[in-house]
Amino acid sequence: MAIATPAAPSVEIPTIPLRELLPWLLMFALLAVLTIFFVSADQGAISIPAGTAIHEWVHDGRHLLGYPCH
């Protein structure tokens, strides 16, 4: 994913330097993956924390958003 090539910079459309984008991406990707994990897989394949409360609460969303469940 490291697209370090400056390429031919089109004059009118400014790009966002990847250096500037990376911290945002790292921070938010971590948050997003965690969120997706709790809705899509927690207390199914992996359980953190143990129990079924989270699983049951988001259960219908898990099925309807296409994630594997029961």
Binding site: T35, I36, V39, W57, D60, G61
Partner: peptide, 11 residues
Amino acid sequence: TWGLLTGTVAI
């Protein structure tokens, strides 16, 4: 209801 809403809004 609330559970489903939690899931769709979070995702």
